[in-house]
Each structure stands twice: as structure tokens, then as C-alpha cells.
Nucleic acid binder design. Structure first.
Lengths: 338, 338
DNA sequence: CTGTTAGCGCTTTCAA
DNA sequence: TTGAAAGCGCTAACAG
């Protein structure tokens, strides 16, 4: 089966290849007469344009690279979906690249995407230090990056407003009537989960409540960490009716301990987490938490990227805080007084 | 920043572009002398080959198209991951295409992938009738397809052996000592879930047990369907100690009903499902079920596709039954006699 | 209003 | 052992 090219169409329609191209792209006046001859030929021969040739000629591919740790992780899957969807709307293909947490593989993909002349790259890097993408950016490749600092690179970054997350969760508990709200927090105050504690404090203060270090035990960012912190909290003797957990894993650890210690959740103690991990919606009780709008974030990232690709934005690095939202499930209920 | 091409390298190294190409691809003898001059020039100028130009010249792109309903559905996500991984190993990019269950969008992607000259397409179509890919195949595009009949198309198909699924699940229950094993099945015996019933019967017969229509109620392929069927089962008065549910949704419906009726699972009644849906592992008790090896299936699909792409296979349509595996969790335990 | 033609950057045949 | 040169299929000056 011989491959049909624009040349065959030109011949069949008895026009120049230029005219065929113009008909195809509808970017120059072509008389109805010729236009219909061309279209007929196209239909008859079943012609399909070759985008590779066009890409070479135009030096753009309408393809985006998406580098993520693992598309089978539902978290990244959501973002990927947002990217794919926004890409499709804009007429772009997206090339799926899982780094599997390996820097080496990430680098291999960066190279591959560059070779393939993708128009832009969306990046969820497996490393904190992102200097390895400097050459990319220097060559003028539009890049957007999730969850990382741009440093001195001219890339747009998308982050979550951790302060706001802590604030939204805590405010929810306050609005439910809770006054003694504990906070289970990570060892460090500087990591993402740690930054949420600031929002917790702010929400309390805004509502005339004070925060009390005795109600703010620390633990690892894990289920066990949440469990240990909760044990500490209980043994402190300080009364409380609700807990804000700075991430969902710790929230689940807290629920487990409370249960073993004879408390009911949410009847005795309400809990709000943060992150909306997969387990959150399946847990019993389903966890009220603060979720990131992942799919939307993916779409917005594409918009930013396209602005750079299309030259609609030519400034320096931009930082976007991604939308988050309180997801109300069953682990927090109104405080009934005592 | 001017773009560096093979020509610049040739000039700098004072050799022909041909020689540069040969060094790059290592496919012709080049004297060490020239080779090192070329490599130096490449390093100095920071040259990166342009795959688009190469693709045009070679009329192949080392790119695979992956059309699936939705990459954020964990089931497809797993398959996608297998595809991406096998693709990466083989030096192929994969273009992610979600049809979102819309035929229109699926068709748009088919067109897009063809235009982009992908070397092959992996397909999980949103429709049962797949005649719309006929033109694709006729043009010689290698295609593999999941869960669909090839009909008269020359495409490789990947399916699950439903009979085997029912067999494995039931045999597990038999091996646990259960003798009175009910089966919750769908309305129709011809859909995938229905075909599993044959395996159920076979496993029973193979072990000298007989199947009894009174123990085989039907319901919709949904949680409610499983619930209703279980109610019917209980009201039949026939004794049983285990249930094989022809899909996980029905299994969960069954568990819910058994609980409300005062039975414990698995202490009183053991249950095995099929599919390994997401909920299966998070459910309480975690569901023992028959799972498809999704990631592996994705990888194998790529292998088949590559065989066609590389011309290592030139025959007609091939049909592959995908591996499945019994996943033992907590919903089925040994029968303790009575 | 339409056609001619020079490339895009690379591979690969052919010739030396 | 190397180089010259003809395209791959298309776009977009430029010319008429």
C-alpha cells in the first residue's frame, strides 16, 4: 500500500502542492473550484497529512511531555488526566513518562523528549534538587514544575498552599462548634505538613481561640507517627474534642489509637486530615480532609505551559498556589456540648 | 540561542554530515581520528539530535499510541503503566490518549496518532463494535486490542480467561474445605461475568461436587445485584458455607446482606470474588478475589505490537489470554466443619 | 489568485 | 575509509 502524499493530491487535482497545503490548512484564499478539486482528490485517495513532516518544517510538534513518578499512583494519575485533557482540548498530544522515582530514568526521558522536540514539559520531579533541568530550560524549553522551588530557573511552579490547608481544616472544626482542637503535626515545621500548622494556629486565633503546645504533639508523617502522637496527646490529660491532623496518614493513625482507647470517632472526637489520600475515602469512617484539585491543577499547568509555548507569556518564573478544597466526609461532626 | 544541527558539527569537526551521522548511530566504520573530532564537536556545541528529522527520513517514530477510556481509573492506569514501562525499555515513547468513553474522542485520537505516524496503537476501545478501526488496520498500522473480538481485523487481542477465573476462585474454596459453595451470577451467562460460572461448575465437578441451580441465584453486575441474589439465596433455605461471586461488586453486595442478616464473613460464610476492583483491597474484610495481571498485560501487549512493528510477526490476528491470579486476602477461610 | 521552490535536519545510497 | 547529494513530506516565502 503506497503512501499518499500531498504530491499525489496535487497531481490528481491538477494543482500545485502549495495549493493543496493551503486548502489543508485553510490559510490562504483558494478558489472554490480548486478547493473542491483538492478535497475530492483527498477523499478519493484517502489522504492523511503527515504531521512529522509538518513538525520538522514548523519546528514545533504540538506534543507535551509529562514526567511524573508513576501514573498508576492515583494522585499522579489525576494530574495526568488533567494534563491529557487540557492537552487534547488544545490539540496537543501528551507523551507519558514515568520516572519510577529514578533520577536516571527521569534524565533519560528528558533527553528523549528533547530529541522528540516536544513543545513543553510538565514535571513532577523525583528529586528536590532540580538543577538537572537547567540545560533544558536554558535551551528555551518551556517547563512547568510541581511541588518544587524554581530556584533561579525560569520555570513556572505549582504548589499547594499548606498554610491554607491547615486553615481550612481547622476552621471547619471551629465552625462545627469545637473549641478544644488538638493538632497532630510532623517532627519538622518546615516540611509541607509542618507548614500547615501555621494555618491551624491562624484559624484558632481568628476565632478567638488560643493554641496550646500541649495539644500539639509531633510524630512521623506516617500512620504510626499519628498513632504515637495521639497516645502522647491522650496521656497529657488536656481535654480536647477534635483533632486536626496535618496529613491523612497521621489522621488514620490517630483514629486507630482513639478506637483502641475506647473513644468513638466521630461521636467523641472529630478528626480532619489533609491530602485526601486514596485510603481517606475508603476508611471507616470516611475521612473529612483537605484535598488538592489534582485534575484541575494538571489543566492549569498546561495552560501556563501553552502561554509560554505560544509566546503569550515571556516573563520570569511564576508561582501558582493550587486550589484546595475541604472534602467533608464522616470523621468530623458538630460538637454537642458536654 | 541558535539551534545546533548535524551540519554545525560537521563543519566544526571538519568532516561530512554523513560521517557525523555515522558516528552518532555507530553504523559504519569511522576512523578513531574522525570519531573523536566529531565527539568533541558534539560535546563542545552541546548538540542534540533532532528525532523529528530522523523520523521523517526513516518513516518511523518509535512512538506508540495508547488509547484507553480513562487513565485515572486504576484499572487502566495499571495497564498504562505496563505499556509505558515496556515502551521505555524498548526505546519507545507512549502517547497517552483518554477517550473518556466517547467514541468521537476515540476517533479524534486515532486520527491524531495516524497523523503523528505512531508505529503502533494499543487500544482499549470504548465500544464493542470496533469496525471504526478497520481503515487504520488496512493502512497497515499495527494494532493490539484489549477485551474485544478481532472480528475479521488483523489485530492481536488480549482477553481474560473468564472460565479460568471462575475455576481458580472456586477451587480455592474447595481447597479450603468448603463443600457447599453457592455462586452469585449475573443475569446473562454470555457476558464476561457469566462465562465465569462455567469455571465454577468445572471446579466443583473436578472435585466430585455437584452444582445446584438453587445455590446459583442471579442479579445485576452491581452491588445491589449481589445483595438481591444473596437474599434470594438465603431464602431458598439451601445450606452453604461459601459463595463464589462472579464479580467483586456482587461479592461486596453479598457481604453487606450477610452481615445485616447476622452472618459473619468470613467466619460463617467465606466469599471469593473476581476482578480485584480497587475497593476489594480496602474493603473490610479485604476481599479474596481473582485478579488480572494488568501491568504485565500492558507489557505483553507492547511485545506483541513490537513484533508486528519490527516485522518479526507477519501472520494474522492472534488472541492471548491474559494471566490471572488468585489474590488471597481475608474474605475466605478454611471450613471448620459444623 | 496560484505556482515554484528552497529548505526543516537527518539518513543512506552511490561513488570515489 | 569517507563524502556528495538525493530525498522524507510539508510549509511558506517569493514571484508572477
Amino acid at each position: 500500500m503506497k503512501k499518499i502524499t500531498i504530491k499525489d493530491i496535487a497531481q490528481k487535482a491538477d494543482v500545485s502542492v502549495a495549493t493543496v497545503s493551503y486548502v489543508l490548512n485553510n490559510n490562504r484564499y483558494v478558489s472554490p473550484e480548486l478547493k473542491s478539486r483538492v478535497n475530492e482528490a483527498i477523499a478519493e485517495l484517502g489522504y492523511m497529512p503527515n504531521a512529522v513532516a509538518r513538525n520538522l518544517r514548523q519546528s514545533r510538534t504540538r506534543t507535551l511531555g509529562l514526567i511524573i513518578p508513576d501514573n498508576s499512583n492515583p494522585f499522579y494519575a489525576e494530574i495526568a488526566k488533567g494534563v491529557e485533557d487540557a492537552g487534547f482540548e488544545a490539540g496537543y498530544s501528551v507523551s507519558l513518562c514515568n520516572s519510577n522515582g529514578m533520577l536516571e530514568r527521569e534524565l533519560a526521558y528528558v533527553e528523549m523528549l528533547q530529541a522528540n522536540q516536544v513543545d513543553g514539559i510538565i514535571f513532577i520531579s523525583t528529586t528536590t534538587e532540580i538543577q538537572h533541568i537547567q540545560p533544558l530550560v536554558n535551551r528555551g524549553m518551556p517547563v512547568v514544575m510541581f511541588y518544587r522551588d524554581a530556584g533561579d530557573l525560569n520555570v513556572d511552579t505549582f504548589k499547594i498552599d499548606n498554610h491554607l490547608a491547615g486553615y481550612l481544616a481547622t476552621r471547619h472544626l471551629v465552625e462545627l462548634g469545637h473549641q478544644r482542637i488538638a493538632c497532630i503535626r510532623p517532627i519538622s515545621d518546615t516540611n509541607p505538613s509542618g507548614q500547615r500548622v501555621g494555618g491551624y494556629k491562624a484559624a484558632l486565633e481568628e476565632n478567638g481561640l488560643t493554641w496550646n503546645p500541649a495539644l500539639m504533639p509531633r510524630g512521623d508523617n506516617l500512620i504510626v507517627g499519628g498513632a504515637n502522637a495521639t497516645l502522647e496527646l491522650l496521656s497529657s490529660g488536656e481535654p480536647f474534642t477534635a483533632i486536626y491532623a496535618s496529613n491523612d496518614a497521621m489522621a488514620i493513625g490517630a483514629i486507630r489509637v482513639l478506637r483502641t482507647q475506647g473513644f468513638r470517632v466521630p461521636e467523641d472526637i472529630s478528626i480532619v486530615g489533609t491530602d485526601d489520600i486514596l485510603l481517606a475515602s475508603y476508611y471507616e469512617p470516611a475521612l473529612t480532609t483537605v484535598a488538592q484539585l489534582k485534575q484541575e491543577a494538571g489543566s492549569i499547568a498546561v495552560q501556563s505551559l501553552l502561554e509560554r509555548i505560544d509566546g503569550r507569556y515571556e516573563g520570569g518564573a511564576r508561582e501558582t498556589m493550587m486550589d484546595i478544597r475541604l472534602v467533608i466526609r464522616q470523621s468530623a461532626i458538630p460538637y454537642e456540648g458536654s
